[in-house]
């Protein structure tokens, strides 16, 4: 067994590097897809048919495709139409990875935010309108703060999913944790040890996030309704 520890310790720097990249991609995707999710949720609940259709179309396309296909599409297919790889050289790979993941995750977040907004009693909106608040003010000061509390649990779930989904970026040679594991194993042939280390690192990241979520839920006194 001492051998197993050795191979892990010897490759710890690469593994940690991979974990850092996983964290970086996760946070970037979470940030971008939260913003996109909010925008498309607002479009989806809009009363204007065109805006509503745009929101609905966005969700059905990007939630409807396998994530792996989305990654391949952005990375391999899109450059055939638009020379993105030239525009963004040498950052095309990370940008393509973040873009593909964000499109997918934001489709799910759109649905979470939309459901959160719609779960707030209509009386709240009417009361806000009745004192002369605009639609924007009503969203900003009344509806979103209430919806936010209810969205924390499902959205943290989605963030956990995002961390796990970044492992698919290994297919376009992004050196995140999973890819690092593969690389290390290709030279050391220590599958069991390295995959165990990789698994533990994922669990640490995810449990940290779960902890933060628990704190937020207590902090905001999530109502059980």
């Amino acid at each position: 067994m001492s051998n197993s520890f050795n191979v892990i310790w010897q490759n710890a720097p690469q593994l940690i590097y991979g974990a850092k990249l996983t964290l970086f991609y996760s946070l970037a995707v979470i940030a971008i897809s939260t913003v996109l999710g909010l925008i498309f949720a607002l479009l989806k609940i809009s009363h204007r048919p065109v805006l509503k259709k745009i929101g609905e179309g966005y969700v059905s396309v990007f939630r409807g495709l396998p994530l792996l296909v989305e990654i391949f599409y952005v990375y391999f297919a899109l450059p055939m139409i638009l020379p993105l790889h030239k525009w963004f050289d040498p950052y095309f790979t990370p940008i393509a990875g973040i873009l593909a993941l964000s499109l997918n995750e934001s489709a799910y977040i759109t649905e979470i935010i939309r459901a959160g907004i719609l779960s707030i009693n209509k009386g709240q909106t009417e009361a806000a309108y009745s004192i002369g608040m605009t639609k924007y003010q009503t969203m900003r000061y009344i509806i979103l703060p209430q919806a936010f509390k209810r969205m924390i649990p499902p959205i943290v779930n989605q963030f956990i999913q995002t961390i796990k989904d970044t492992s698919l970026l290994s297919v376009i040679s992004i050196s995140e944790l999973t890819r690092q594991g593969q690389l290390i194993i290709s030279t050391t042939f220590q599958s069991l040890q390295i995959w165990t280390a990789v698994a533990v690192l994922y669990l640490v990241m995810i449990y940290t996030l779960t902890g933060i979520s628990g704190y937020l839920e207590r902090r905001f006194k999530i109502d059980k309704s």
């Binding site: 009386g123 009361a127 002369g132």
Partner: peptide, 14 residues
């Protein structure tokens, strides 16, 4: 609406 106060059956406090 600024000039028209409304009170609802179910209060609708924020």
């Amino acid at each position: 609406r600024r000039e028209t106060g409304m009170v609802f059956q179910h209060f609708n406090l924020f």
